[in-house]
Structure formats: structure tokens, C-alpha cells
Amino acid sequence: MNGKPYGQPSVSARAVRRAAERETEKRVSKPTLAVAAPRMSFGHQHAEAFCLMWYACECGHRERIWNSRDGVTAFGFQCPSCKEPKLKHVNWGLDKYAPDHVPAPGQRIWIDLTRDRALEIARRTVDQVAKGKLPEGADLNRIADAVYNGGMQPDLVVYGYVEAS
């Protein structure tokens, strides 16, 4: 006997969880219409509307990001851990419809991009490219309008974070 109840070897909770994750990844390697269709039945225009979605990077960073809007989200973007543009939406089959989700402080969420934020992004982008030579006001507004895209673009923010002025 190995000294354990009923002689059964115990399996750690982590081993069980990892085995389940590996099995899920095998079954759901790519999004399919069968996976996306049920989420569309909630009456939204986009399958990822109000979903909690897993994002992962090659460096090992994983996080769950909530889409607080009925709009598309970025498939990939910069990882906060390694700073490489390799954080990607993974395990689409594990997206969870959660319209009443209350994010924890510090959780990242997708929100609608505002015109002011689009102007800030345009100004920062032009500053990086033009090395401080900002274009005339009309040109900057034209760039901001392209970034804003009529309010269709998502913005990724940290819930509960307010930038100091």
C-alpha cells in the first residue's frame, strides 16, 4: 500500500486542470461557425460581444479580457510582459458570454474608442513618426478621424485606472 486512502494514487488539481486545458486546445484549435453561431443568438451583431476572452503570448503571459461592447476586438496586440506584439486571442471556444460581468480593478477591458482618445493616439503616432513636428490642425484631425473610424474601433483600457493629470 502506498499509505493513501483506498490505495488510490492522488492526482493534483493542477494536473487535472492542465489535462483539461490540453484536451480543450486539441478540440478547439480554430474558431468554427458551430462555436460562433450560439453566441450570435444573444441578439448582438458580433460574436465576441460582451464576452470574456482569453489572450496568450509566446512568453507565457495569459489574461482574460472582457469586451464591454457589441463590436469586434483586436485579434492580437502588444504583450504587457514582454512588450512584443504577440498577445493573441486564443481558445475561442472558451469565450464566455458575460453581459453582466463586473471587471476587477486592474483587469483590461475593450471599450468604444472616443474621439478624444483617437486624437491623442493620432498626436502620439505623428509625434513618433515626425519627431515632434505636428502637422497643421486640419491634418491632425484627418488622422484622428481615420483612427476613430466613426466610433467603430475598440480601445483597450485598464479598469479602475485613472491617469493622473
Rank of each mutant, 00 (worst) to 15 (best):
Y97L: 13
L33W: 13
R62C: 09
H61K: 11
T32W: 06
V102W: 00
R123H: 10
H46L: 02
Q45D: 14
V126M: 14
V72A: 09
V129N: 11
H61Q: 10
R117V: 05
L87A: 06
K83Y: 12
F77A: 07
R124Y: 07
N67D: 08
M40P: 00
A122R: 05
C57F: 02
Q78Y: 11
S41Y: 01
F42C: 03
P80H: 10
E58I: 03
P85I: 04
F75C: 05
R64Q: 10
R117D: 13
G137F: 01
P99V: 12
T73I: 15
R117A: 14
A56M: 06
G132Y: 03
E120D: 14
A130R: 13
P135C: 04
R64A: 05
A47L: 00
P103F: 03
K131A: 13
K86N: 15
L87S: 08
C82S: 03
K83V: 11
R115I: 03
F42A: 11
P38W: 07
T73L: 00
A36N: 07
A118P: 02
H89F: 13
I109S: 04
W92G: 07
Q45R: 14
L119N: 05
E136D: 15
V90P: 09
A138S: 13
V72N: 10
H101W: 14
V129H: 10
Q78T: 15
G60N: 08
A98C: 14
G132I: 09
L119F: 01
I65Q: 00
V129P: 01
S81A: 15
A122G: 08
W110L: 04
K133S: 13
A104L: 11
F75L: 08
